[in-house]
Nucleic acid binder design. Structure first.
Length: 878
RNA sequence: GGGGGAUUAGCUCAUCUGGCUAGAGCGUUUGACUGGCAGUCAAAAGGUGACCGGUUCGAGUCCGGUAUUCUCCA
């Protein structure tokens, strides 16, 4: 069977058992603070399991793309070194939400594996939860009894809490699970060692392929467990492992999912898979990572230096680093793999094909940037190496290695490699200590504590903010959140006009009022589909009616920006072409930000055109045409633009202004005329193939225009209201440059003349030529004068057989009321042990100051102009 | 969200602990050698040292803030 056929057989099987087949959710998660990526098939059903969302279909199955690269499940460093770890993988799963439970789940899992894809029964082993007395949990006898009907008892293995009790997080639904393992060793091996001893022992050929989780408990913040009212079945089968098993391979990377990519890497690098262990590891790393990166970009997550984007960047860099070291790839190469990847997976995941050119560009740019980082790091390391060699050291300080890594992004293993080539090592312990401190700092900063929800009334929030900005409601639940010694409260109401941050639009601010108590709501967020109001204090009385009022001014400014974003999006497509697609959006009361795909800088003219077109749409005063609950298919028929990487429900909201039609949950103006006017402030690049526009609307445009007009008027006035301001300024600048040059050359001439005069009039004191002079030049000018005197004098004594070889110059300066002293000694005086620094300090006493410099040249400043003349005279060679 | 770094000539970067009128390589311009080009040699132009404020006799260098950017951790 091909991988394509295997995926389909799973979905067909569960469809035949009355399951609704749903599509894969995006890998990047947007509205859950506890999770950045989809790391299990159940993520998209989390809100159903938590009871925040209603159950639409009690039985569901799908194939979900997952990423395990951060947090609790982090396999990143394993990937490539063995044959079965991945960053991205596909998870085949079936779910029951309060419908069937252990009996059916086990029966169907067995049926699918043994009858549909026909895995040899003798090669299958199962585990069940052995119990955990310290938590008051008993052995999962129920699962044991069911399994007994299918599997010989000796192949049902007890598993501990770590392997066989599944928890979603620190709190929330959890329960025992039952794993199915398969032994795919050759018969010769199977005779020697019983697979029973190898289950869960990280043997590459005795592997878990399917985990069936029976969620029946809920863990609270204090660690205690309660029984879940609606029990949930959550299963996950590793698609890549299943393919390996069914295709008679011993490595996931030998299946038809990865081999085409590995072959292509071989072609590009000129190396062969299967000859050298290090090359093989590298090829597996690259084949795995390129999938992750490509799919992330397709889901709208670009590499960046923070959060989810940073994780993607790090994965890409890991691949580049391996390629750099073991395949000798010193220029971008991963971008060349997208062709073959599209061939392998494009059919199942069309987003890959649709976004192909963007993916290639982004990867290429990222690769090149990292290669530059590597080059920079190698330079820095070289510098350290030569210092170490000079000192005879052979161990690089841990903190140096850490700085290279932490500050300059230079990978530790490369540092080690380069040192090894030079017969040196790294102080790894020192490195680890620094790393631990860094992690501790970050942990402390991010530490967040939440109490359990205090539930006053069950229920869901009804959002009324599309139609009104004020409503009366009651509190459903609340909890306290503490972060960095600051705490605030999260409040959930039965009904609210507050818009929670979503789809780029910021959350509303406002107030809640009960009786004579008014509490400020400083932000509104969406958490696991609950609208959460953030307040600094808890109302005194909880079981009363509250009036919830949104800050009208801010909300109105926000909706102007949001609606304007839609109009501008359409205008961009009209001006630049249909390749323009939204890649990100941020809408606040102050301004709007819109990121979109486009491959070059917009010209001034294009920006103007977009502005004009948008403003024209604003003036048309299109009324808001809103469809709150229409099926997604119908919405698409209306021409609504759906975004890649967005998760849409069955029914969606469509917002239409004239011909601009978008899927959008945000709040908008009643008619476009309310926007007033749009002005683009900037257009810039944020990544390869992605541009960003920042713009303002309404009142903000007015304010900006006022400011600009005022500035212009002021400037014009400065130029006597000349009709051609640009020309006047240009002329003034030219004139300024010309005068500057003239003044400079005039000063040069002055200084030169003064120099000659001073040298000629120099007195002789004890065989030393001495120049004493007071001027009102600036310090910089005096410096020039003194150095010129010195230069000329050096020339003179070289050419002429002068009596005196020694020179001392003392200049007093009085510039802008501040006295200064400058002393210069010729080289021979310095050699004799005189120091200009000592002399100038001695003299500076008269002007109440201090100073310093070098032995041949020193300056000082002071506060007492009256003592200047005395100071000049006082300086004498002792 | 937190930590660390960077910002100096058109580009890539020096300038150790505050003080040798801020330097190098590449690039640009000019000149010389050559029939011309390539090349070599010589010279020149090019800097508000990101921005704002402070400490100091003196700040590119120290301190604080802002902006941009890189990087690590979560």
């Amino acid at each position: 069977m091909t991988s394509q056929e295997i995926r389909q057989s799973f979905l067909d099987f569960f469809a035949s058992k009355d399951h609704k087949i749903v599509s894969s959710a995006p890998m990047v998660i947007k509205d859950d603070p506890t999770l950045m990526f989809t790391n299990a098939g159940m993520n998209q059903f989390k809100n159903i399991i938590l009871g925040n969302d209603p159950i639409k279909y009690p039985r569901v199955a799908n194939s979900q793309k997952c990423l395990r690269v951060s947090g609790k499940h982090n396999d990143l460093e394993e990937v490539g070194h063995d044959t079965y770890h991945h960053t991205m993988f596909e998870m085949l799963g079936n779910w029951s939400f309060g419908d069937y439970f252990k009996k059916e789940a086990i029966a169907w899992a067995w049926e699918y594996l043994t009858e549909v894809v026909k895995i040899d029964k003798d090669r299958l082993y199962v585990t069940i939860f052995e119990g955990a007395p310290e938590e008051g949990l008993e052995r999962d006898e129920e699962a044991y009894e069911i399994w007994k009907q299918y599997v010989p008892e000796n192949r049902i293995i007890n598993g501990n809490k770590h392997d066989n009790f599944w928890e979603m997080g620190d709190t929330g639904p959890c329960g025992p699970c039952s794993e199915i393992h398969v032994d795919i060793r050759p018969d010769s091996e199977r005779v020697k060692v019983d697979a029973l001893e190898l289950v869960n022992q990280d043997h590459p050929l005795v592997i878990e392929i399917w985990n069936n989780v029976f969620m029946q408990y809920n863990r609270k913040a204090d660690g205690s467990l309660t029984t879940l009212p609606a029990k949930v079945i959550d299963t996950g089968m590793g698609f890549e492992r299943l393919c390996m098993t069914l295709q008679d391979k011993t490595s996931n990377y030998d299946t038809d999912i990865f081999q085409p990519i590995i072959q292509e890497i071989g072609k590009i690098s000129g190396k062969k898979y299967g000859e050298d262990e290090k090359v093989d590891i590298t090829m597996r790393v690259i084949a795995d990572h390129v999938r992750t990166i490509a799919f992330s970009i397709a889901d709208g997550q670009l590499p960046s230096n923070a959060k989810a984007g940073y994780v993607i960047r790090r994965i890409l860099r890991r691949a580049v680093r391996y390629g750099y070291t073991f395949l000798n790839m010193h220029e971008a190469f991963m971008c060349k793999l997208i062709d073959v990847l599209s061939e392998v997976m494009g059919d199942a995941y069309p987003e890959l094909l649709a976004q192909k050119s963007l993916i290639e560009k982004v990867i290429k740019e990222e690769e090149e940037a990292f290669l530059r980082t590597l080059e920079h790091g190698i330079k820095l390391l070289d510098k350290n190496l030569s210092e170490m060699k000079a000192k005879g050291k052979t161990v690089l300080d841990g903190h140096v290695a850490f700085t290279l890594y932490d500050t300059f992004g230079f990978p530790l293993d490369l540092t080690e490699l380069i040192l090894r080539e030079n017969g040196m090592t790294v102080d790894l312990d020192g490195f680890k200590i620094e790393m631990e401190q860094q992690k501790q700092r970050a942990r402390n900063a991010a530490a967040m504590e939440t109490t359990d929800w205090v539930v006053l009334k069950e229920g869901e929030t009804r959002f009324v903010g599309y139609d009104s900005l004020e409503t009366e409601s009651e509190l459903l639940r609340y909890r306290k959140v503490t972060q960095k010694n600051k705490s605030y409260y999260q409040l959930v109401f039965a009904e609210t006009p507050f818009y929670a941050e979503m789809g780029g639009q910021v959350g509303d601010k406002g107030q809640i009022i009960s009786g004579d108590e008014t509490i400020d709501i400083f932000d509104t967020k969406n958490e696991n589909n609950l609208t959460v109001h953030l307040a600094n204090k808890l109302p005194k009385e909880l079981d009363v009616h509250f009036v919830l009022t949104v800050n009208k001014e801010l909300r109105k400014a926000t909706i102007r920006n949001h609606s304007a974003t839609h109009l501008m999006h359409e205008a961009l497509r009209e001006v630049l072409g249909m390749h323009v697609e939204q890649k990100g959006s941020y809408v606040s009361p102050e301004s709007l930000r819109f990121d979109f795909s486009h491959f070059q800088k917009m010209t001034q003219e294009e920006i103007r055109q977009v502005e004009r077109l948008t403003n024209q749409k604003i003036r048309e005063n299109f009324p808001l045409d809103e469809f709150r609950n229409i099926p997604i298919a119908e919405a698409k028929e209306m021409g609504a633009m759906a975004l890649f990487g967005e998760k849409y429900g069955e029914t969606v909201r469509v917002v239409r202004f004239g011909s601009s039609t978008e899927l959008c949950g945000g709040t908008h103006v009643q008619a476009t005329g309310e926007i007033g006017m749009l002005r683009i402030l900037s257009e810039s690049s944020i990544a390869a193939g992605i541009r960003r526009i920042e713009a303002i609307t309404g009142h903000a445009v007015e304010k900006m225009m006022d400011l600009q007009q005022d500035t212009l008027a002021n400037v014009r006035e400065l130029f006597n209201n000349t009709p051609d301001l640009t020309k006047a300024i240009q002329r003034s600048l030219d004139e300024n440059a010309e005068l500057r040059k003239q003044v400079e050359s005039f000063m040069q001439k002055q200084i030169s003349e003064l120099k000659e005069k001073l040298l000629a009039n120099a007195r002789e004191e004890n065989g030393v030529k001495v120049i004493r002079f007071q001027s009102d030049f600036a310090a910089e000018t005096i410096k020039t004068l003194v150095f010129q005197i010195n230069n000329t004098f050096s020339e003179q004594i070289k050419n002429v057989d002068s009596d005196s070889q020694s020179l001392m110059v003392v200049i007093g300066g009085l510039h802008e009321g501040k006295p200064s002293l400058t002393v210069l000694l010729s080289k021979d005086l310095v050699d004799k042990g005189y120091s200009a620094v000592n002399l100038v300090r001695e003299g500076a006493k008269h002007i109440q100051g201090g100073g310093g410099g070098q032995p041949f040249f020193a300056t000082a400043g002071g506060k007492n102009p009256a003592g200047l003349a005395q100071a000049i005279e006082s300086i004498k060679l002792a």
